[in-house]
Amino acid sequence: MAQIHETTLEIDLKALAHNYNYLSSKLSSATKKLGVVKAFAYGSDSVEIAKKLEELEIDFFAVAYTQEGITLRKGGIRKPILVLHPQSTNFDEIIQHCLTPSIYSKFVLEHFIASAEAHKQNHYPIHLKLNTGLNRLGFDPDEVNYILQQLKNTSSVKVEGIFSHLAASEDPNEKDFTHYQIETYKKVSEEIIEALNYKPIRHLCNTSGIINYPEAHFEMVRTGIGLYGFGNSAEEDKKLIPVASLKTIVSQIHHLKKGETVGYNRKFKAEKDTKTATLPLGHADGINRIYGMQKTNVEVNGKLAPIIGNVCMDMLMIDITGIDCKEGDEVILFGKEKSAENFANNAGTISYELITSISQRVKRKFIY
């Protein structure tokens, strides 16, 4: 692969296809697949990722907020797009751009029905979100009668889907709670389906649910982090390929004498003669201050170099003592071999936070 000359996030669409096909192998041929492309497709590029997934014949997409769905529509994406956390101020735009709202509360249901009626809609598709224990968004089980009464009084909307979200499907210590969630979801969704007299798409499993709870795949599954190369366990990570690789270059090399310091607040002090390198990215690019102070490292010519001192807005410094390198050489923060999971874990956070934080000012390069 060609040497990069500036900070670049390489996005490997072949790796995306591999991950999609691996996760699909866990499913029956009848099970639909929803790809989660919120947050710029987990920090990469939502339109390019969605285009590739459409090529792979995915069935559905999901985003967090309305504007993310509009971006996909303007980018040419035609598959159904579920907006997971719609706000009432955006309901007109949701209908205008043929997006599918998640309906998760009485307020949202009443206001979306009003908007659909104002737009003279008939059977506009909605997905009902049930709260089965994550306690974040969703109707509680005792609100079913209210939902059914509201639906009975209008023809403006139709329940296309019923879903919930598992709280700890990756955690073997929480199997009892996950089974509780699955059973609660089955009971409440079946109650709704019986009253509707037709069968919406049911979806409950996230990436870890796909892998660990095949009995809960229902008619559709959702995958987010798995598409991007992370399986929430070391064993599954080996079977997936990280889609994104963050690379930069050495801008300048410094030779410090014992006792000299580096960066703001002089947070790194050389205990011996030390060679350091400055890299052209910082917390404005998504490499936050938590990664400084030697908590994690980068790769320079096959050697690991710790990030030293405080991470700056546009730069960070590394200790390259004993590493043969020069200005202009490539530096890898994370990628296929050097895991974003390890980079993040070393600093006390998770891969989700790291990869979704990569700034839009970082150049994107696609590998087809």
Rank of each mutant, 00 (worst) to 15 (best):
Q67Y: 06
E68W: 09
E68H: 07
I70W: 02
T71M: 07
L72Y: 03
L72D: 02
G76K: 11
R78N: 10
R78L: 14
P80R: 01
I81E: 00
L84E: 11
L84S: 05
L84V: 07
H85Y: 11
P86I: 11
P86V: 05
Q87Y: 15
Q87V: 10
F91N: 00
D92Y: 09
D92I: 08
I94M: 12
Q96C: 07
Q96D: 07
H97F: 15
C98P: 00
C98W: 04
P101D: 06
P101T: 07
Y104A: 15
S105G: 11
S105Q: 08
F107K: 12
V108I: 09
V108L: 12
V108W: 07
L109S: 07
L109N: 05
E110H: 06
E110Y: 09
H111E: 15
H111F: 10
F112N: 05
I113K: 00
A114Y: 04
A116W: 12
E117S: 11
E117F: 09
E117I: 12
A118V: 08
H119K: 06
H119M: 01
H119F: 14
N122S: 13
H123V: 04
H123Y: 13
P125F: 13
I126A: 02
H127S: 15
K129M: 13
K129Y: 11
K129H: 13
N131T: 06
N131D: 15
N131S: 10
T132Y: 06
L134W: 04
L137I: 10
F139D: 02
F139C: 04
D140S: 14
P141I: 06
D142N: 11
D142C: 03
V144Y: 02
N145G: 09
N145H: 14
Y146S: 03
